[in-house]
Design a protein around this nucleic acid. Structure first.
Length: 247
DNA sequence: AAAAGCGGCAACCGCAATGGA
DNA sequence: GTCCATTGCGGTTGCCGCTTT
């Protein structure tokens, strides 16, 4: 994991400020004054969550709800990632919506997403420093290699990759699935109706919810195959792998 | 009409991560 | 190699408006 610096965004400048930039900023402050007694962090938050163009306000559509639920089941509380999949919605807004509406709604239906904290554990400061050093050491070693050695290394890795289907040194860690359907509500013919009584037949979100849960956790109870429509499966898988590639 | 309770949402806080000096 | 300012993220808090008593 890691965080791309803000300046890595397309079109953003980084590095030392030029005299022209300093003058522009000074002129701007002279014109408008220092004005706000706000720290940069607060300003940024206001911009990101409220003022930025393209922010969608208002109620979440059922489709958005559905997507949030599915993404939560995949990623846990990684709201920024989830927000990345919903255009115009901020991570904060989605997080609030989840805590105030969706989680309660699901609980009311007897569906409790087991929050096994799929959110990766934060590394300690010490560990963070160690990782940093490790990374630099690796980079240093790399730099010392001659072109020939590098070429050999690359070839070795490529052959290993073919064998193991591992992309370089980076392994994709698929998030641990979370069981969303409460225990006791399996899909066996007898309990299926029980489950449907609980959630209601026409609730689109819950149907998709079931489907996704089945997909994530495996079909352990002879799920009715007709509900696993091929197109939907493809769509969900596509989305799933796209998500993984973004992590 | 006033107080208490509740829910939604914006903002804050702490910390990890980054990059430059 | 270390320090420090800054950014980004997720958890938490507190304000405000609405509902209930």
């Amino acid at each position: 994991m890691g965080r791309a610096p803000c300046c890595s965004k397309v079109g953003m400048k980084k590095g030392p400020w030029s005299i022209e930039e300093d003058m522009l900023l000074t002129n701007y402050i002279h014109l408008h004054g220092e004005g706000l007694l706000r720290c940069g962090k607060s300003c940024r938050l206001r911009w990101v969550n409220y003022l930025r163009p393209g922010i969608k306000r208002g109620n979440f559509s059922p489709d958005e709800d559905d997507l949030i639920i599915r993404l939560y089941s995949l990623l846990g509380g990684r709201w920024s990632l989830i927000a990345g999949r919903l255009s115009g919605r901020t991570d904060n807004e989605i997080k609030n919506h989840w805590h105030t509406n969706l989680s309660k709604k699901l609980k009311a239906l007897g569906i409790e997403p087991k929050s096994k904290k799929s959110t990766p554990k934060r590394t300690t400061k010490k560990k963070c420093r160690q990782n940093k050093e490790e990374k630099r050491r690796r980079q240093g070693k790399k730099a010392r290699k001659t072109d020939n050695l590098l070429q050999q290394e690359v070839e070795k890795r490529e052959s290993r990759m073919e064998k193991d289907e591992v992309v370089g040194k980076f392994q994709v860690h698929i998030p641990k699935p979370i069981r969303l359907i409460p225990h006791g509500y399996s899909y066996s013919s007898s309990s299926k109706s029980d489950f449907q009584d609980k959630i209601g037949e026409n609730d689109e979100i819950c149907k998709k919810f079931q489907l996704f849960d089945e997909l994530l956790n495996g079909c352990d109870n002879n799920i009715s195959n007709e509900c696993l429509e091929e197109n939907m499966l493809k769509e969900v898988y596509k989305e799933y792998f796209q998500l993984i590639s973004e992590i």
